[in-house]
Design a protein around this nucleic acid. Structure first.
Length: 466
RNA sequence: GGCGCCAUAGCCAAGUGGCUUAAGGCAUGGGAUUGCAAAUCCUUGAUCCCCGGUUCGAGUCCGGGUGGCGCCUCCA
């Protein structure tokens, strides 16, 4: 496949270090709060990448870390009185629950920072030994950015010394303002970990480099094939990761870099400080996870994504078409036929995840399938082909996975369903007696409940409207 | 202040110099179908923010302008 490498700033043919085996590392969440739409976008994008690589026949090692050591977690613990481990357990579980609802498959490995301390010590020690890191009087260990001639080659910055100086507040102990902490010494009663450098906790970039070395590096020209994350991580996070690994191991951390665009809410960046965060769990109250997945998937991963309800509903209608087709073939089993649609779909996604092209192909497939079924409702060969295509879409895009009836009835409780079915029976009786005034009155009554009826040769079905 | 991204129909969104006098979806108008509807199918719409340039040829490259946005500070 082809991947746009955001460091090379060009599209490159993807060639893994070991043919047939792709490795992927993505920066995961800090588990101190519920996941928001930005987490969802990133997770969905790289889930898609993983599916495409697998569909192309690669054996994918996908590592996504869980950051469970962080000042934000510690602060939350102080504020709430809940223990650190309790907090990280709660939000790790919440993250998994939300991602699962969005159809995001679990990565191959999900290392936690607390379980990777040895690897971090090793990395830091190597940097100290090789003169790329230094200790301060207060016990902190800093990375010496000036010791790395390649520093800033990832984010293509040309840091102006004077300008940097005014940006950084407490640089008193640093040799150079851009230097960053590998280990922060802690002397009070905060959470600390014992280390060869004294009690403290790791700097925020340390874990990614350490985990990649521990779980992925196979001693090649670089550590991991693809490194991914949100666009905001390019600098300083990825720059610093790259510097650490380069100086500790002598090779680059990644061969390809992928950065997904931001999610904005009504045109503004979503951020905690602006107070416009949008939690996935809240969005899931109104929409099924798959509707959200499809919406977030619909815009190319490198573009910024603006979230608003109106566009979400338009996106849902597009997904509805897939489910309507699925409904027409409900109850039939798919087989593994391969079709030209499938290869075209994979080819589109293999071109830097060109989702718009892929969805256009999907729409065309759906239209042709409906047309064919209209013309030849009993064509078994056609049905087989459509079912195979739908199954392929499920696997590759992670959409169309639900029971179509449940999809269209999302959010309606059991009691209401019973009531609706009773009204449908009454209406069908009226229809049979050609009492259309009464049957239309019943339909209006049902419509008032937010439910739409559809008469078909197979009977009367209903969907949630709006 | 430094670095960077974006600007295509009412809305979302492809397009990386000629095969595209611009995919696909939503919405709108018309039609087929339907007891009426819904669904489905057919059909309907933009010369690509502005100005200048390069080229036989530009939405697509270059320069300038205008308007959005992001990173440089915790953030996917």
């Amino acid at each position: 496949m082809y991947i746009y490498d955001s460091v090379a700033k060009t599209k490159r043919a993807f060639k893994p270090l070991i043919p047939g085996k792709a490795s992927l590392y993505v920066c995961g969440p800090t588990v101190y709060d519920d996941a928001h739409l930005g987490h969802a976008k990133s997770a969905i994008v790289f889930d898609l990448l993983r599916r495409v690589l697998e569909a192309e026949g690669s054996e994918v090692t996908y590592v996504r870390n869980i950051t469970d050591i962080d000042d934000k977690i510690i602060n939350k613990s102080r504020e709430t009185g809940i223990s650190i481990t309790k907090i990280t357990d709660i939000y790790t579980e919440a993250y998994h629950r939300d991602m699962s609802a969005l159809g995001v498959k679990r990565p191959t490995l999900e290392p936690k920072a607390t379980e990777s301390l040895e690897a971090m010590f090793e990395l830091i020690q190597k940097l100290i030994d090789s003169g790329h890191a230094y200790r301060t009087d207060s016990g902190d260990v800093y990375f010496d950015t000036q010791s790395d001639s390649e520093y800033l080659s990832i984010s293509h910055r040309h840091q102006d010394e004077a300008e940097t100086q005014q940006r950084v507040e407490s640089s008193d102990e640093k040799r150079y303002p851009a230097d960053f902490a590998l280990w922060k010494a802690v002397h009070d009663d905060s959470i600390t970990f014992d280390s060869p450098f004294g009690p403290g906790r790791p700097g925020w970039h340390t874990e990614c480099s350490a985990m990649i070395e521990k779980h992925i590096d196979r001693g090649g020209a670089y550590s991991v094939d693809i490194h991914g994350g949100g666009a905001d991580l390019l600098f300083p996070h990825h720059e610093n990761e790259a510097a650490q690994t380069r100086c500790a191991t002598g090779h680059e951390i990644a061969n390809y870099w992928m950065h997904n665009g931001f999610v904005t809410i009504d045109g503004e960046k979503m951020s905690k400080s602006l107070g416009n965060s949008f939690f996935i769990k809240d969005a899931l109250k109104a929409y099924s996870g798959e509707v959200l997945r499809f919406f977030l998937l619909g815009t190319h991963y490198r573009s910024d994504f603006n979230f608003n309800e109106e566009d979400l509903l338009a996106s849902k209608k597009r997904l509805d078409r897939l489910y309507r087709l699925k409904k027409r073939l409900f109850g039939l089993n798919a087989r593994d036929d391969t079709t030209s649609f499938q290869s075209a779909l994979l080819e589109a996604l293999g071109d830097d995840l060109s989702i718009s092209r892929a969805l256009a192909l999907l729409d065309e497939m759906i239209a042709e399938a409906n047309e064919g079924l209209d013309a030849n409702p009993k064509d078994k060969v056609l049905k087989r082909r459509i079912l195979a295509d739908l199954a392929y879409v499920e696997t590759l895009l992670g959409i169309g996975t639900m029971n179509p009836y449940e999809y269209f009835q999302h959010g309606i409780d059991e009691e209401t369903k019973v009531k609706i079915n009773a009204l449908i029976d009454a209406r069908n009786a009226a229809k049979k007696a050609k009492d259309f005034a009464r049957s239309d009155a019943i339909r209006d009554e049902i419509a008032a409940m937010g439910v739409q009826l559809m008469d078909t040769p197979q009977g009367t079905f209903w969907e949630r409207s709006e």
